[in-house]
Write a protein that binds this DNA or RNA. Structure first.
Length: 583
RNA sequence: GCGGGUGUGGUCUAGUGGUAGGACCUGAGCCUUCCAAGCUCAUGGCCCGGGUUCAAAUCCCGGCACCCGCACCA
């Protein structure tokens, strides 16, 4: 079978988009390196993404470590949640989730049980292999995180992060300070994440070491709107909701974001906004709109922390619908967990417009009476009194006398020793855990799909042509320069043309092989324009620009070439609107 | 991790125990006035490691990678 995936893999290895890592020693699945062209492509995709999130949304970018202490992942839930209890059939060797089997066969909630206990339950209830009925082996853990130890000996345990997100959560106190306490604010991170997948087998689609671009938007719980929503409200997106997925004939529907929001299909304006932004971003890269949809996570697949989640999915020729990005509402899950586990205050402070004055009843022990009477016990008594609710205290004081018990000792008290005072407390704001909206992008998959959706074959002079129709903003090479033949005069002119081009333009030079072959070499890696220096150049200082998609050519003066190429690559002018310079 | 299949230069492939061959690509040279032209030359290979054998690309074992199916994918 030769499909687009095979063709892209072949071009990738030969021309340098990506290839298997440490291949000379026999690569391991789930690891890929990016070659020179792939690296440029990724750089361009990152740059477009930063354009959206850093320039337009004004988010901050950080770099956090890829190895983090075990505590981080205990709090985040990855240590337990990322670990599956597995068992294998002794007869047919198939693997199963041990806890799921126990739940299927018995009434037990096996989710949180130890492996030992699950194994006992399997034995007691004679749970057997669902495939062949064979005996099941011992229960073992499989955690998808890569473990390491920090420092020599029995140092602290560390893990390679399974997502870049945690770095932004644990840095929250610093981030809040650098944002001077204001909400909402957003933070992004581009970097590697690691998951020790059981068996990744889909090229760069499922990797053990992969690239993420994640944004975390910290918002007030009740304020999940976005000031720029109007910019995307008329954007039509293909939404595939839970209901549609559960219906037999359910199909995604194309709908304006504003309508999807009004009808409650999308739960909050801010989610709708980032769905719109994600669509625009992906289309900018050249991803095919007809092969793009947003699918809502089903209840059972949604992560423990998420309230609502929509995946941007792209259709791949070989792999079907694959997730490129996930836009989820993580609520206050992460900050709350890290706050509790670290004993640090990860809440935000929301200042009221006007400080609120709250009348409060406060219990006030009279120490000048308590002291002389109860001596060394008086401090403890006072503390116990303060623990009583003011309302209850008022009732107690209505009686002539009341008793409290401390460490088994009883003390008789009355209104001489304690009173309930009314105090006016000034509150200038309140503390709360911000909610997190997380648009998270898988860079490797986006890169692959960008190539796949841009890949095309057409026929030129009865000959098949492989061409990657990259959008100009992502194309690794902007322009190629060729002398028509290897003639000294033409070579010299070519150098002058290259010199006249901006340094920002990615340029290649090629003088070997026939001109047609050189055009094909560039078509195959998606270079949008080729400049050719021919004999006429010597006479009138004009060169030809050849467009990749149409293979049409125009003639331009060398003095105009830099301006023209810049206009073309920045989409300020269309190729077919240009006419050859008068000669 | 399990079962099945596959593994020969960058790519496609011939080779069934006895000197590893071709085509394309790539590079050098010649030729060449715009879309993979031609000629000459060159680089480059039996997935890796063991074993059997006088001799292994070929047979056996193990590993790795890829493909299909199962399982897994917070």
């Amino acid at each position: 079978m030769t499909d687009i995936y095979d063709k892209i893999t072949e071009i990738s290895k030969r021309r340098g988009f990506f290839w298997p890592s440490f291949d000379i020693y026999g690569s391991a699945s789930g690891f890929y390196d990016y070659g020179p062209l792939g690296t440029k492509l990724i750089k361009n995709i990152k740059s477009k993404w930063r354009d959206y999130y850093i320039n337009k949304e004004s988010f901050d970018e950080i770099i956090s470590t890829t190895i983090m202490s075990e505590d981080v992942f205990r709090a985040s839930g990855h240590l337990d949640g990322f670990e599956d209890a597995m068992t294998e059939c002794n007869n047919c060797n198939k693997s199963f989730r041990a806890d799921h089997l126990v739940e299927d066969f018995t009434e037990e909630q096996a989710d949180s049980l130890s492996n030992q206990k699950i194994y006992e339950l399997i034995k007691e209830n004679e749970v057997s292999c669902p495939a062949c009925g064979g005996e099941l082996g011992e229960v073992y853990n499989f955690n998808l995180m890569f473990k390491t130890s920090i420092g020599p000996g029995t140092g602290r345990n560390g893990y390679l992060r399974p997502e870049t997100a945690q770095g932004m959560f644990v840095d929250f106190p610093y981030l809040q300070d650098t944002n001077r306490g204001k909400l909402p604010f957003g933070v992004v991170q581009i970097g590697r994440a690691y998951r020790n997948e059981i068996s990744p087998r889909q090229g760069v689609i499922r990797l053990r070491e992969f690239l993420q671009m994640e944004a975390e938007v910290f918002v007030k719980p009740g304020e999940k709107n976005h000031p720029s929503f109007s910019k995307v409200k008329d954007e039509k997106v293909k939404l595939y909701s839970i209901d549609q997925q559960e219906e037999k004939e359910g199909k995604p529907q194309k709908i304006k974001l504003e309508e999807a929001l009004k009808s409650g299909l999308i739960g909050s304006e801010i989610l709708a906004y980032y769905i719109g932004l994600t669509k625009k971003f992906l289309l900018d890269l050249g991803i095919d709109q007809s092969k793009l949809r947003f699918r809502q996570h089903l209840d059972e697949e949604r992560a423990h922390y998420a309230e609502d989640c929509w995946d941007a999915e792209a259709k791949s020729d070989r792999f079907g619908w694959i997730e490129l990005a996930g836009i989820s509402d993580r609520t206050n899950y992460d900050l709350k967990k890290h706050g509790k586990n670290s004993n640090q205050d990860l809440r935000a402070f929301d200042k009221y417009k006007e400080p609120k004055k709250i009348e409060k009843k406060v219990i006030s022990p009279n120490m000048d009476k308590l002291g002389p009477k109860f001596k060394d016990k008086s401090k403890k008594i006072a503390e116990s009194l303060k623990d009583i609710r003011p309302e209850k205290m008022e009732k107690l004081l209505d009686k002539e006398k009341f008793e409290i018990e401390i460490d088994g000792e009883k003390f008789k008290l009355d209104d001489r020793y304690v009173e309930v005072e009314k105090k006016i407390e000034k509150r200038s704001g309140e503390r709360f855990y911000p909610h997190v909206i997380e648009p998270s992008y898988g860079l490797d998959r986006i890169t692959y799909i960008t190539i796949e959706h841009s890949y095309d074959e057409d026929v030129l002079d009865e000959e098949k042509r492989k061409v990657i129709r990259f959008n100009k903003i992502v194309s690794p090479i902007d322009v190629a320069v060729f002398p028509l033949i290897e003639d000294k005069k033409l070579l010299n002119k070519s150098q002058k043309v290259i010199d006249s081009l901006d340094n920002e333009l990615n340029t290649v030079y090629d003088e070997s092989g026939s001109i047609g072959r050189r055009y094909r070499r560039q078509d195959e890696i998606g270079t949008p324009y080729c400049i050719t220096i021919d004999h006429q150049t010597i006479e009138d200082n004009t060169v030809t620009i050849r467009e990749r998609d149409s293979t049409d050519q125009i003639r331009v003066k060398i003095s105009d070439i830099n301006t023209t190429i810049n206009k073309l690559t920045k989409n300020k002018v269309k190729f077919n609107e240009l006419t050859s310079s008068p000669t």
